[in-house]
């Protein structure tokens, strides 16, 4: 439990934190823009990893495997969206259904095994635990590109109509926006980004794991909320959209560094999920505390 052992773990923590931050950018679309809770992500994060790893094992190019993970993620979100918009099942429920179903689908994709390894020596992995600083650099670049794309997209006519749907669906409809379609697009995009991040995570770890997505929604919320609390502290209210997205990435990093710290304190790693829940609860409460203090 020496300080140097903590410092040695920091770079790896930052790398994983960035990957969770990228995943959280996807969750931001549903949780903050559409203002719905989409639990599909617990399934689609693992799906992304499975798709990416299996394709690479089959000899597909790294980037193409990640794009396929993105595409399959779009599909996962679309299924949740269709259950919700066509069959009127509440989003939270339809997303749980898809999440559960995806567990079997993920096992199918991984040909029945719960874990599929991909060797960093034999395959051209984009990022890996073996080269952490390169991972951080690539992770940061991908984050940058993704933030630029999201910033552009949510400024377009289509993106604005998704924002309006989350904000006030009555207003959206009366202004001619098909809110079923915008909800569907939002759910699809969210899971596309999440599955893409799942693909990255698998490459970093060197394997895809059917349980990889467990708690993804909570981790994503942690990143979003930690990022928002910090953003409000540093920039007060009224910060622009791209800045808030940037803070989601930072939130992911900080969240995972807290995890590293907890592990360094020799906490049983079985208790990690409990700590995650506690941390998220604390950060969810902070804005309310601050409000209460101001009143």
């Amino acid at each position: 439990m020496t300080l140097s052992s903590l410092l040695a773990r920091l770079p790896g923590g930052i790398a994983i934190g960035i990957l969770y931050g990228i995943m959280a950018l996807g969750i931001y679309i549903t949780f903050r823009v559409l203002k719905v809770s989409d639990l599909t992500v617990d399934g689609s994060f693992a799906t992304g990893g499975a798709v990416s790893v299996m394709l690479m094992l089959a000899g597909v190019n790294t980037w193409i495997s990640l794009l396929c993970a993105f595409a399959v993620g779009l599909l996962c979100g679309t299924v949740t969206g269709l259950l919700h918009t066509r069959l009127n099942i509440p989003i939270i429920l339809s997303s749980i259904l898809v999440q559960i179903g995806l567990y079997s689908v993920n096992l199918r994709i991984m040909q029945g095994s719960a874990l599929k390894s991909i060797s960093v020596d034999k395959y051209n992995l984009l990022i890996n635990v073996r080269f952490v600083s390169k991972t951080i650099l690539i992770g940061a670049l991908i984050s940058l590109v993704l933030i630029i794309i999201l910033y552009w997209y949510f400024g377009t006519e289509q993106g604005s109509s998704i924002r309006a749907t989350g904000n006030n669906s009555a207003m959206a409809k009366s202004n001619g926006i098909n809110t079923a379609t915008t909800t569907l697009i939002g759910l699809a995009l969210c899971n596309g980004v999440v599955a893409f991040a799942g693909g990255l995570m698998s490459q970093y770890q060197g394997f895809s794991d059917v349980n990889q997505g467990r708690g993804a929604i909570v981790t994503g919320l942690a990143a979003i909320i930690i990022g928002e609390v910090l953003c409000d502290i540093f920039f007060k209210k009224g910060s622009s959209f791209w800045l808030r997205l940037t803070f989601v990435i930072l939130g992911g990093i900080i969240y995972y560094l807290i995890m590293v710290l907890i592990l360094w304190l020799r906490v049983d790693s079985n208790d990690l999920k409990l700590f995650t829940a506690i941390i998220v609860a604390i950060f969810l409460a902070i804005p309310n505390f601050r409000k209460g203090a101001a009143e």
Partner: peptide, 18 residues
């Protein structure tokens, strides 16, 4: 942004600037 949304009432929402 609200006005821009309203001024596109009845039109397809494209990938052009909002």
């Amino acid at each position: 942004e609200n006005l821009a949304l309203a001024s596109r009432r009845g039109e397809r929402r494209r990938l052009l600037p909002g």
